[in-house]
Design a protein around this nucleic acid. Sequence first.
DNA 1: TATGAATGAGAGTTCATTCAT
DNA 2: AATGAATGAACTCTCATTCAT
Lengths: 215, 215, 215, 215
Amino acid sequence: MGVNERAESVTSTARRAQILAATVETIAELGYGQATFARISERAGLSSTRLISYHFAGKSELIAALVEEVYADITRHMTERTRAATGPRETLHAYIRALVGYIAEHPTRMRALMSVFLDHRAEDGGRSYNGGDERAAVDPVRQALADGQRAGEFRVFDTFVMATTIQRSIDGLPFLLRSDPDLDLAAYAEELVELFDQATRATRAEAGAETGAGR
Amino acid sequence: MGVNERAESVTSTARRAQILAATVETIAELGYGQATFARISERAGLSSTRLISYHFAGKSELIAALVEEVYADITRHMTERTRAATGPRETLHAYIRALVGYIAEHPTRMRALMSVFLDHRAEDGGRSYNGGDERAAVDPVRQALADGQRAGEFRVFDTFVMATTIQRSIDGLPFLLRSDPDLDLAAYAEELVELFDQATRATRAEAGAETGAGR
Amino acid sequence: MGVNERAESVTSTARRAQILAATVETIAELGYGQATFARISERAGLSSTRLISYHFAGKSELIAALVEEVYADITRHMTERTRAATGPRETLHAYIRALVGYIAEHPTRMRALMSVFLDHRAEDGGRSYNGGDERAAVDPVRQALADGQRAGEFRVFDTFVMATTIQRSIDGLPFLLRSDPDLDLAAYAEELVELFDQATRATRAEAGAETGAGR
Amino acid sequence: MGVNERAESVTSTARRAQILAATVETIAELGYGQATFARISERAGLSSTRLISYHFAGKSELIAALVEEVYADITRHMTERTRAATGPRETLHAYIRALVGYIAEHPTRMRALMSVFLDHRAEDGGRSYNGGDERAAVDPVRQALADGQRAGEFRVFDTFVMATTIQRSIDGLPFLLRSDPDLDLAAYAEELVELFDQATRATRAEAGAETGAGR
DNA sequence: TATGAATGAGAGTTCATTCAT
DNA sequence: AATGAATGAACTCTCATTCAT
């Protein structure tokens, strides 16, 4: 990553981006708890932590900006990869593959995001980024599952449990990846697809009943 | 603490237990990062943080003692609850129910443990408690799965992916429970049992070819 | 202190000098062991010890800076005063007078240096400032003595023992001076010059042989 | 050194001796500044620092006892070895040989003593052990020198300077010995004897006017 | 003769942040 | 757009010592 040594006449936007990049790397490597201004500015090649305070109102603003940025990035990625899917089952599979794919492409970005989430999940005071409302976080997946149940493609199960399980089966991958950098994520994704395909698929009885009952 | 290894006196044991309990509560509530000696001693009703330093050689010793204690407690619980299970499938179900059950009985203890793990999972230097070796952590479950495959009770799947998914489907519950204290964990456990029963069960083809090799 | 190596600003330099001066005074008066940040900052008239930590990376950096500064000062002084000497005997005398002279001019500076040396001499781990290599420390004097022996100006003796004795005859003076502030250092120097002149001078036999043997 | 593991029913005297021995070793190795109760009790194999406080009223009492003991030991040694000397010159040589000899026999004891002296020499508050009166410390040697001058065996010189130089030429040896454990102290002693023999011996002129006054 | 438990004071260090330019 | 200087608060940890048995 190119870092200016003199750091002169850099636009504010560029500077913020530079700091955010260093923050992502620092959190991804050391974890949120160890990501101090000092360490971030060192990684960014800045002369003092003062510059971070200058560009961001405070630590929470810095983290908020990071989350917002990575979130937007993920959303963009996911939208692109799941748009084409037709039907609940295909959508679910696309979702799994897309999210694992994002992790494969941006492991540090995702690890940083998770590290922030985990820390805030652990905290009480102040808003956490996944809202403290874990239900909302898995809502998109849950929708697809509910759709599939209505369409008779999926068997009857608690959509919240299933969605949460799917989500958690993926969001630990950034850390798994670090202790095992050669992990084949593409294969891992296919295994998950198969796993949740089996877990969600309609039983013969249901499948049979579905033609009659419709809905 | 004495220089020589001696038997702890009753008083000392009680004091240590008191401090450990306060540490569990503090970490469960505020997260590992916010769990300072000051906050712990305040919660324990101690006059100063000095008393913690007196009974534990340092912060790492305190955390190590906590992990050790909770670990032993979980192990005891799990052994009791899974002993009776016969066969891989039953074992898997018992495992899920037992672990969820432990969380239901000791949510703060489990949340504290998870918080410690997460923080250390995020770190690089130094030993983390789950060893940085995520593979080893899920090994017991993996064994049961492999056994089931050999016995033809389970279909062919990657045991590591399945074991990791099972583990992660449960270990997020302490945090989920906090944002949703009324969550019915017993029902949750049954949903997971069903989910992974579906995910692992042998297909008809495999069930027929029962003599075949696992994977 | 910034992360990048930058030119120190004037203010910072002045502040560092102020802290270093207070450190010298504190160590000279109370000894290395009692020279805490609190006492140093109090003497420097600073509001908090934090300011020391701001200007020096740590206590060892502070001490290192002190040693470096005083060392450079002594070296400058000694070079000036011994440059003009011609011949080993004159050099030896100039050395004694110059070093005692420095102590007369800067007793606290020298006492502080000695106090630091003594403490580090006592330590095992880590580098001590005189290197733990006492032989190297007296090498310059030893050179002059060896030269004098080769030139026949000095008698035969162990140059290491003589050099060490000379060095130690002087480096205790800062402490002697404190218990006896009226000590006449100029006269002391002359006594030492005479003492070591007698101790090193060639015996008549050697001196006689020397005219014959040449060199 | 034999250390009781159980530490039961040891007489107070034996216990004090054990603690003092551990104190000597600790100071000799780590220096006075690092010699804390914790480190001393660890070396003595005691279960807690409490035992030291029990047997000695405080740290200063402990150190005082140590100094007193070692001092008595040295005095005994020196008296034995210098008693036989006849005449100032022989006395001086015997003194040098005896003191160096003590260091050769008890390097740690002597190093510990020096370390205590040095630290207290550096301090201001409180009595130091060599009295803050460095003049008194070298008085025995000085007496012999003055006697020799009166007897015409020694030339005219400042007896305080000479005595101090002699003293310091020897008292650095414990530290020198540590950085160079193979140092031949017997040879070193002979070199010092010769050195100070040359430095003190009467010139021919003085030797002739032997009846004349000293100084 | 000994011990376990507890303590107040102080150590150096790190944190994000603010002041003033 | 940036910087140097400074700061208050909090951190873990160590010190010799005391209380109560």
